[in-house]
Amino acid sequence: MNAFLAIIGRDLRLATRRGGEAALTLGFFVVAITLFPFGVGPEPELLGRIAAGIIWVTALLAATVSFDRLFRADMEDGTLELLALAPLPLELAVLAKAIAHWLLTGLAVTLLAPVMGLMLNLPEAAYGPLVAGLLLGTPALSLLGGIGAALVLGARRGGALVGLLVLPLFLPVLIFGISAVEATLIGLPLAPHLLILGALLAVALPVGVFGSAAALRLALE
């Protein structure tokens, strides 16, 4: 447990020391969202209708651009070798890194989402389900994205390839994140959608942790 917490603590500390690396993802999130009113026009009704979709899709893209760095720095300076040889199973080290990644990106995006909702005229009833959905959905993104980040470590091209690998896997999270918002807006119960998002997270946990660890071992050979 000590080793597990040490990895989370170190990644968080590195992110704050590196100054703005975590802010980079948030910056991308905010800038990308502000492009939409320019793209579809500033009418409040139109924006309000598609606001939840804009926020969710941009959250997926912001997560995707952050994955390339998830393991690369540790790979390049030799830290990954030591993590793989440590008494702590590599699967748990991967989980610790995914948690740190989520705290720095997913949680930050979730907290920022209501502010973006204000700018996009998101209907009042949608705030709760949007944030609840992001809270359950973004950890699944960090877990599944880790697979892509680990798979491209030894590859010749990184960034764009990660997107092609992981974005299709994100589709169920997006669908149920949005359906949570839409169900609330037409007066249907919210709970089933959140339960399904929780189930998706429960699947992403083993798949992400074992998939990433297998890919990392391959990259280290």
């Binding site: 170190r10 500390r13 590195l14 300076d77 030799g78 070798e81 030591l82 440590a86 702590l88």
Partner: peptide, 28 residues
């Protein structure tokens, strides 16, 4: 039992010397 020294030093330049070492000490 294993302590590994590879080609790379596995040092994080953003952390202090003692912090770098304290991390590995916590890791086992």
């Amino acid at each position: 039992a294993l302590a590994w020294l590879g080609h790379d030093n596995a040092i994080k330049p953003q952390l202090s010397v003692a912090e770098n070492l304290a991390f590995w000490s916590r890791l086992g």
